[in-house]
Design a protein around this nucleic acid. Sequence first.
DNA 1: GTGAAAGCGCTAACAC
DNA 2: GTGTTAGCGCTTTCAC
Lengths: 350, 350
Amino acid sequence: MSTRRKAVTIRDVAKKAGVGVSTVSYVLNGNDNHVGPATREQILAAVRELNYRPNAIARSMVRRATATIGLIITELNNPLFVPVAEGVEAVLKAESYHIILVQAKDVEDEISAIETLRAQQVDGLIFMSLSVHYESDHLKQLTAEGVPFVLINRDLDDPEINQIKLDDRGAAYTVTQHLIDLGHKRIATIAGPRDARRSAEYRHQGWLEALTANGLESVSNWIVSAPYTYDAGYEAAQELLNQLAGETNGPTAVFIANEALAVSALKVFHQAGIRVPDDLAIVTIGDPPFAYTIPALTTMALPVVEAGRIGATIVVDWLRNGKPPQPQYINLGFTFNIRESCGATRRALP
Amino acid sequence: MSTRRKAVTIRDVAKKAGVGVSTVSYVLNGNDNHVGPATREQILAAVRELNYRPNAIARSMVRRATATIGLIITELNNPLFVPVAEGVEAVLKAESYHIILVQAKDVEDEISAIETLRAQQVDGLIFMSLSVHYESDHLKQLTAEGVPFVLINRDLDDPEINQIKLDDRGAAYTVTQHLIDLGHKRIATIAGPRDARRSAEYRHQGWLEALTANGLESVSNWIVSAPYTYDAGYEAAQELLNQLAGETNGPTAVFIANEALAVSALKVFHQAGIRVPDDLAIVTIGDPPFAYTIPALTTMALPVVEAGRIGATIVVDWLRNGKPPQPQYINLGFTFNIRESCGATRRALP
DNA sequence: GTGAAAGCGCTAACAC
DNA sequence: GTGTTAGCGCTTTCAC
């Protein structure tokens, strides 16, 4: 700002229009039912002439509200983030709120992000995480202090906190059940990073429960796991193949925990001469573009844009009403995209 | 904020520590060379006890600087955005600046975003666009008023404005030349959305120039174009195939303007029984994950994270120095990922 | 060394 | 209807 010429203030406008500052303020804020039309015109003219732009910081100062929401995300570089941010952005823009974006990779980061954002006087907070389970004293603290916030996709048992969950377990269960309905009885899995209480673990549980519910076995040799990256997925799929080598009665299907892993597996299977879905059926959890893999992946799509939208809406309502909503635990559903990789469109197994 | 209990202020701290507010301010801002160690301890103790958090808004008010940068992007939902945002975030976090994120789909949006952000008293602006060419009076205005800002990947001829460009034309040229070096003489293209002065048009020009420079022909039947989406790419590839039907001497290679288009084309070609790269070689412009297509795509990768990083650095330096840098026009290079789809690793054509 | 006081630009009582 | 004024919480001269 140092090089910028001195800003024009409300006082300049008032002087130019020959009125008091409060009158200008009234007009600018739409409380001009008590202001004469001539006066209003003079003021508006002065505003235009001086190219006056109200200082939102000064306004925030006295209003004790900044119309700003902090968006804290675990990783920018994650396919889940962008759609959530889109949903959040759409709602907040429509409601005239601003977004301050902060990346926080772990709890320490998150705690310091909260500090910074509160120092910045944000009106509320939206946490978008990768369903990790963190120690949550800092969140309880927010609740205690009445700070409006919402958690998207975190694993946390706390009925006092507004939460929006993507149903990892349900999606995995349903998609696995689909394989079983198609006649598969021997189903392997390429799991994600299965740390306790993380998204990937719940997807794994969903797979396991579907097997159990149908009286099927989970074979330890048929389970590999890897971080959600293309490279790790490539190696994991190779590892699975190695473990299967020599099996006389191997799996006929694989549940793969996410898109990146599934895309890589497709490549490995192709290179190994395994035909999908004929030799091996594949299902995964993820999103649309992968209709364009060969074969197209059957996936469960999670409503991520929706999650962002709902999260933003909760916080905005909270702010508008001036009081916390009834704490909600919103469990979002999923959309089943049955495509080629599961073999559903061809035939059922005996 | 309405439900939140009254915030503790610097005055509360001063009272508790039995000192004046200015002394507290000195200590908090590290100007405590004139403050006695005992006094300092008292103050720090009071800060801890009261759980005092300085109000950044009030500070911004008097300092006339907010330590906040506005990041204006054309589309959140674009593969180019996330890496740029990552680069920006990394630099700004390290430099203790905050990011206010705004999406602006067109010039009107952009103009209003600038207004809003300036009202919010951001210290600087970073524009990340999809290389569209916009009317730029609003940017000239910023320059005139001395507002620190930088343009990433916009098509704009203005030596007064700091710009960071991704070299679309060069990337396209180089990757096409690579096909030619492999012996290809008949090269088709699936172009992107070729509006005048947009990224896609420059990629198209690069393709064309490479042909021309090598005395090769561009055949109008061998050119199709489509928006950068998987669906449109699927149709465009089919259209290309239709136009080629019956040709006795068709293309042996295709330059495809981006990843999404290339992935879809791969699928269409596969379904049509065309082998890549044996029957048709493919190159595109884009990023790493697509090593996992079948076959792996040969791509030119653009340094997008780097672009964000440089943009943020320019703005921060500008702010720190209190004066604009020599206007720079930074043209970033590209990285060639030679993989399978171009056939380079197998053989050269006669 | 430390404190009092004057603003930063704005809103909202409270007068007139 | 419109103007005056007291802050919002902080930094920063300027006295002492």
